[in-house]
Design a binder for these strands. Sequence first.
DNA 1: GGTGATTCTGCAAAGGTTTGCAGTGAAGTA
DNA 2: TACTTCACTGCAAACCTTTGCAGAATCACC
Lengths: 396, 396
Amino acid sequence: MGHTHRVTATTSDEGPAVPVTIRDVARASGVHISTVSRTFSAPHLVNPDTRVRVLACAEDLGYRPNRAARALITGRTHNIGLIIADIANPFFPPLIKAAESQARHRDYHVFVADTNEDPATEEELVHALAKQVDGVLLCSPRMSNSLIEQLSREVPLVVVNRQVTGLPCVLMDVGQGARAAVEHLVGLGHRRIALLGGPRSSWTNREMRRAAGAAARAGHAELTVLGPNAPTVGGGSAVAEQVRRSGVSAVLAYNDLMAIGLVEGLDALGVRVPQEVSVVGVDDSTLSRLTRPKLTTVATPTATAGRTAVDMLLQQDIESPRGARGPGAGTALGVRRTTAQVMLQTDLVIRDSTGPGPHARPARPLAARPGPASPRGPERTRARPPVTPSPPTAEE
Amino acid sequence: MGHTHRVTATTSDEGPAVPVTIRDVARASGVHISTVSRTFSAPHLVNPDTRVRVLACAEDLGYRPNRAARALITGRTHNIGLIIADIANPFFPPLIKAAESQARHRDYHVFVADTNEDPATEEELVHALAKQVDGVLLCSPRMSNSLIEQLSREVPLVVVNRQVTGLPCVLMDVGQGARAAVEHLVGLGHRRIALLGGPRSSWTNREMRRAAGAAARAGHAELTVLGPNAPTVGGGSAVAEQVRRSGVSAVLAYNDLMAIGLVEGLDALGVRVPQEVSVVGVDDSTLSRLTRPKLTTVATPTATAGRTAVDMLLQQDIESPRGARGPGAGTALGVRRTTAQVMLQTDLVIRDSTGPGPHARPARPLAARPGPASPRGPERTRARPPVTPSPPTAEE
DNA sequence: GGTGATTCTGCAAAGGTTTGCAGTGAAGTA
DNA sequence: TACTTCACTGCAAACCTTTGCAGAATCACC
């Protein structure tokens, strides 16, 4: 596979033509370049007759305003950068699409970049994007908090899935989700539960550990933390053996990918889910409904997060336009801006990958033993009113 | 879900500081701005002593060259635009990641944008990206060929998954893949086969129809085309009922998503795969190994396509730098460039979603009826040497 | 000491656009 | 008619860099 076969190779003169600028249009329509400029950026300032003439010339010259040059002087690019930890993770597409749609409504474009979960790439991308966008959405960053704060002085930032003091953040209450998941498992009669950790530098990871640990203690269950692991299918299947050896009867995974990988891995070892081990994921990605057994998972409001993040960025942006020292405007130092932190609720969605554990109450023996093929619909437990987030940890 | 809870809202003075320019560095280090510029873009031209001084000043002023301004004069942004039909389709992430990695090696950054399968959005995005990137990779475009050609005069273009005369293209030999799939099904004893079509304006879609039709005729099988459909899981499950009514015993779907959706839909109707209906997908996305039964599918060399496309773009780019009318260089009209078309091979990967049909030879009755849980490993048939692509159709 | 080469630095134009200011002419008002 | 107002347009500076050219200083060499 992947063998290359060159079918055709020709040369032609059909290149991108010489770029046509505002000057060419001005010359063609016999007006000054400033009039052409106004025709596009402030049409009400130019005489209707001239306007149509200019537009006509622009049309058949194929003129398009150079957005980069425009940005140089206005300080606004009308672009938003969206930096994503791993574009192959089905968690992100809904977020991306929601952000794009929200941005489009506000006449902005979104440029997405993928970091492969690598902090160095993350930093580099922020620098690369800095002057070409009006702000950057940092999704599930793997950098340290201090580096994020530092970068935020270079370009307006909104952080998703991480809490950074002084910066606008969109958080999902995975703590509450993890607690609901553990309570669900405890309620099913599980007393030995494993938590499959994700990347070490993930805020979500820390929140889950904290909340799952507390919930386990409250439920008199024992929680084993396994990890950190790569937050991928491979990362999940890689720990299957370890999970089996640990002797737990239920697992809460960092995300759906790991949960699915774990189910795969356990299956290969001959361990049945949910009969022998129950598995819970996080994200409620499209995947969770497609695999068998269907995954019990903590639903995160991904699309809402995308929309909210864009809103927060644009709001902040509008208040303090970049390059605020216009001609004659003096130097505007330290523009005030508002930084809000928003916490979104999560839901536990119960499907077929969780079942009764070794300490299940024998009451209602039939109803209490819903096999993976049981026809009951998905059950949703709404998370409780969100709590205030834990104080931000010192570093990462 | 998605209820917003505002946790914190503060204002602070920690905004993005006043942008520090090359001027500030020049002033601080007591040299002319041109020296600062050279310190960054041509260090060998500046005295080591001055260089360290300038670098030191730049460092503690936090100076970063403005890439947009630089691009304005050099004509090169060192960015590549990557326009994707649907970022939620697992077909794309490997392509994106390969493109990003290849670009990074050449000191380029990739900006991804998603079009939601919408031609209008596609066009708009090309315009938006035009002056901010050195070239655009158009993946599985839904625009008309003529529009693509027109846009290619605005910015260098490389097209993936579509054949446009005069433009560099990266194609996957889905025709060969579809043929192999149909032959596989015919060999299994299927005589009535359905093709689940994808988007009408998809080149891949047309190729598949053409090749699958020919292969069916050659195998004395009847091919029913169903569609066009949305190339998504939903699009697949939506036609399940129609597939059942059509009475076919095997289906070749436009892509894995549709195939998986179809399997889901058939399952809901009580139709078993592969016992009653065989299903083949296209793409060999990560999904195809995760669902049950594991999907028989046509593997497309997605990562290779991403790498190749970047290479073709950069090669073309290097030959003809944009804005080629440098100071005093006169007007360079119609720069020559080379346009190649590359066809990549595909492979049929046989897994568990295909099984014997109504006309199966009764020979080896046991081995010929592999259930979905049969432990045989995946089987790969290498596609034959690629053929020259069919001549481009007039429109889209 | 004179010549030429070499190394470094400054000057200024250029890239494509926006925008405050001033100027023009026409229309409105007294 | 004289004066104000208004709508429109041109001028030129500004945004932040890069880069060809030329000047200055240093050095080597004869």
